[in-house]
Design a protein around this nucleic acid. Sequence first.
RNA 1: AGGCGCGUAGCUCAGCUGGUUAGAGCGCUACCUUGACACGGUAGAGGUCUGGGGUUCGAGUCCCCACGUGCCUACCA
Length: 915
Amino acid sequence: MHQEIPKSYQPDAIEARWAEYWVKEKLFFVPTPPPGEAERIFSMLLPPPNVTGRLHMGHMLNQTQMDIITRWHRMRGFVALWLPGTDHAGIATQMMVERQLEQEGKKRRELGRDKFVERVWEWKRHFGGAIQEQMRRLGASVDWSREYFTMDENLSRAVREAFVRLYGEGLIYRGEYIVNWCPRCETAISDLEVKREELAGKLWEIRYPVIGMDEFITVATTRPETMLGDVAVAVNERDERYRHLRGRKALLPLLNRELPIITDELAQPEFGTGAVKVTPAHDANDFEAGLRHNLPRIEVIDQHASMNQNAGPYAGLDRYAARKRVLEDLQRQGFLAGAKDYVLALGRCQRCGTVVEPRLSTQWFVKIQPLANRAIEVVERDYVRFTPPNYRLIYLNWMRDIHDWCISRQLWWGHRIPAWHCECGEITVAREAPKECPKCGGSKLEQDPDVLDTWFSSGLLPFTSLGWPDATCDLRAFYPGSLLITGFDILFFWVARMIMLGCWFMAPPHRPGSTGSVDGKALEDSIPFREVYIHALVRDAERQKMSKTKGNVLDPIAVIRKYGTDATRFTLAAMSSPGTDIAFSEKRTDGYRAFANKIWNAARFMFLNIDRLEPDSRATLLEQPSRGAAGIPGFRAATLEDRWILSRFNGIARQVNQSLAAYRFDEAANFIYDFFWGELCDWYIELIKPRLAPDSKDDARTACGNLAALFEASLRLLHPLMPFITDELWHAMHAGSPPQKSVGLAAYPQMDEHQIDTAAETQMAILQDLIVTVRNLRAELKVDPKRRVPIEIFAHMPETRTLIEANCVALTLLGNVEEPRFANASLGKVSATRHTARFDVRLIYESQIDRSAERQKLHKELEKLSSELANGERQLGNEQFIEKAPADVIAKLRSRVEELKVVTGKIRSKLEEFT
RNA sequence: AGGCGCGUAGCUCAGCUGGUUAGAGCGCUACCUUGACACGGUAGAGGUCUGGGGUUCGAGUCCCCACGUGCCUACCA
């Protein structure tokens, strides 16, 4: 199987094929490790995308990072489980299907609950797999055999189980409180689902007549229509202005209701008029005040945000129409005292944007403090670590100021609350539908119509996805997860809740098979994951947030079609520096496709030479007893460039491993990029070309073997970032009989200290410096590129001369010069010369030199170097510096100053020639 | 209101616990169709690190202030 690879890199031709192959071959299937076997395990949960979702750039960033980390672990020999699944996404999915019904002219309520839910399942069967398809295209190395859906029966059972247990422990309660109500979605939503928006509005001041006095008390409000539900007026106890009104009553305009004037902390003298209307049914603070003073609650706004019968003449009006009418009527009747400009923080439903109405209603809540306490402790003790670390504080601040969590939703799509209501009023919470009421024995039981907040079930996923409440082997092996990678936007929604619920249900007594109490060890073992990596937001090239309304949303699949998945992944990785949002620019991706093309062509060069050497026996060059992880096995460092590249590869392998361990995807990408292009291609391949010439068979075999070994190892190094091109080329290298089914199952390169050769690196640096200097001279003197010129070199030290002589071929080839002549003294006053601290080099070339330009250039250089020299000398003359600075810093500066002395001396004498 | 972050080359960003020559990619300029690659090669121009003060032998890096900018949290009617 010896196919020629095409001349240019065509990602679309190879990527789909590998994506399919990996899935078909089940390469990422992870068998459950038998109990007791001490294997290194890496496990991670994919933040489940919504079933309704389509892949966006945020997903792609998220998944690229997860895939890099997972592949890296897998290649290092970990049992690497990356667990995929999708989320039923209550509101979002319900809205989707409602919209579909709307187009058919139908309404959800006409259809009825059962039919509607069946309809959603149908929708899911039809369109629910889209995002998984897209994930395959990204190359996400998840274990598809374990894929879950949050509404699966086993997961639903776990959700019921969790609910029943929390209820049994008194951590779930039902009650009537003010909640955030979305009149469009007709459901309660949690505090987190309300988005605040600052808006210019008015603070209206309304005069309420005080009964029995010729006086008014003026209250301020931003929502005048709620006055219809007023039951009191509050003033502050300290407020002398209203002292004489205490105990009196005010008369509510428009409705003529009598309102007691009470004293309460609710009223703050500094704000508004100091007097505040109290509407317990429509404001959370007023609700609390109402409890304190035993006030009635009068609801005037219904679930559609329309006024109800209690609003008297305003009944039936929408809240805004009512506001307008109320204001007009107040104005007409002389009760409107004024209106001030005011910036109000308006709450909107994050799903549909409708202004949220604080509404009195009966809901289910989680008593959160006991859960939060553990969630605080595990982070304070660093059982769970955050990257970047500042999220730790953000998390703790939020967790320390947490409120009870409203978990019921008035939706049809989701996990139905496992509570049954009896005619007698008794509520039974149970795992399965009870046959009869345990209190009255009645059999007319109805299940609570509400469903649970989707995040309730998502919060349980770290263990329910592994089989909880059963004591499964998976749970034992893969919990806690090693890592979670996600965006900061769901830090509270999801990350925080997983930690709370994990630390509750995976600690005694809920942890399967556990005994005893919750000590430090049990708490540490209960966390859902040991590390959390929070990634940035992907913005467009102009740093704008991507949004459908702005129309600047980039479709990752479109980008992939244009540049390839590898280039797109590499772009995202290279731009993932911690704490900074990613301004995604296609130009950058274009650049990384060029990188892929470079790799492709380097491979072609290698294949060409291998085939020239030993036709049809490509693989034999790669036959090594073992392709271990350390260094490059089988690399025979025969020459300076061999020793150098081998040393460099090992250094880079160390750095890439370090970067990945620290989630520095950007560093890892750049190290590999610079190494592959800037060292392997630009220098190593150029340097070995003479050895590959047909007349030097032995040399060629060594050189080819080295190149192949180096290339193979580099593919392994690059694989987590660019999985497709690396697997394609790796398979091509092994000509049909690869040692593993994929390079993704081969060993990840690690540094081998024996292959580090600092002497070679230093020598190579000198040689590179010489070659670059020569090229530079050629360009400046405008030497015809085709012309090989004679040169003269003065080396300060004999070993430098030896080095140059030994690598003469490299110099003549890459510098395009003739063999050098060596001078015995500095070339200070000769034209067409460059000086460095180690050597002088001169082109022997007759050309018209622009003397004034040359003089200017020398002056500029001298100026720069002398100021650096002066600086250095001043430092060295400073006693404080010598005393306090570390020895290596001083030594470095000393040698730098010596170099500068030599070079500036040479430039000075050179300048004499031009004056 | 409280909290967090950012401001480095034309653009997008690196620069770790302060160490003296501030880097990269893209873009730009000149030259080169050299048998792996024009998605290429070679060379080059370009920065008083937002401003001001301070700590230090030494500050892009630490502290304070100002300006600009982004985000999160909060029940002030």
